[in-house]
């Protein structure tokens, strides 16, 4: 298995080296939206004398920088490619190989993150200076962040695959993922830190998986929650991961059966 991964890794790096410019573009991808909302919250906070709830301007900066890092580390885009493969019958050759297609995606995903992490860090340092970010991070937070972001990445990856797998039944994966993305837009902590979502939205966001992918690891890294709360939130991550793991296995098996049945 390790050798397989090594070979896949080489192949993917090779592909990546061909598209050097693209690597940088993807990196910017995970920075832009957080910066947009950071700027908006800074404007709102300034209009209110510099403080919104427990956040001041520098806390917002730290939060959105963490969010940007997390969103790079948890990015998952394989749903779109997968749908394409199913639709145009490109999947069959992959199903014939003795390796589950998810492994190709895992490696591709890892390679993309590996190549982005360095340029991203540079950009984030620059932004944190521009906005004068203040992190409340303690060593404990860093220790908790590592497993938390891994849980988040796995969760994001698996949920992406569950969505993608719907391509076996419907040709409208695009609609499905649009609705999913828009829910994430509201509930994942993008438009506002989860703690600032008004009224019932906050409770709802804690019951849904979206926040556990972005907002939760970002708050842990920023030091915005106490370590004990962090552990609680990570339990939430683990629960959602388990749910999606089971769902993925079920859906995938049923989907492949359906796919071969149609004989595409």
């Amino acid at each position: 298995m390790i050798r397989t991964y090594r070979a896949l890794l080489v192949a993917q790096l090779q592909a990546a080296s061909q598209y050097r410019v693209q690597v940088l573009l993807w990196m910017l991808f995970s920075v832009i939206r957080p910066v947009i909302f950071l700027a908006a919250w800074v404007a709102v906070a300034n209009a209110q004398g510099g403080q919104i709830g427990t956040y001041d301007v520098r806390d917002f900066a730290a939060y959105y920088i963490c969010l940007s890092l997390v969103s790079c580390l948890t990015a998952s885009w394989n749903a779109y490619e997968f749908e394409y493969e199913v639709r145009f019958g490109r999947l069959s050759p992959k199903l014939l190989r003795p390796l589950h297609p998810i492994h190709y995606a895992v490696v591709e995903n890892l390679v993309a993150k590996l190549t982005q992490i360095v340029p991203l860090s540079i950009v984030l340092v620059f932004i944190s200076i521009t906005f004068d970010a203040r992190f409340r991070t303690t060593p404990a937070h860093v220790l908790l962040f590592v497993p938390s972001v891994m849980l988040a990445a796995a969760l994001s990856f698996l949920s992406g695959w569950v969505l993608a797998t719907t391509a076996f039944w419907t040709t409208r994966v695009h609609s499905v993922s649009t609705f999913w993305d828009r829910a994430a837009f509201i509930f994942a902590g993008q438009i506002a830190p989860l703690a600032l979502l008004p009224g019932p939205l906050q409770a709802i966001s804690l019951a849904l998986p979206f926040g556990y992918v972005l907002g939760v690891p970002a708050e842990i890294l920023r030091g915005g929650v106490s370590p004990s709360t962090a552990l609680l939130l990570m339990a939430g991550q683990a629960i959602w991961l388990a749910i999606f793991f089971v769902a993925f296995q079920r859906v995938w098996r049923a989907g492949v059966r359906q796919y071969s049945g149609v004989g595409a």
Partner: peptide, 13 residues
């Protein structure tokens, strides 16, 4: 031109 292997790939990057 591109060669095979991890090292060569990284170099070509």
């Amino acid at each position: 031109e591109r060669e095979e292997g991890l090292a060569a790939t990284l170099r070509s990057f």
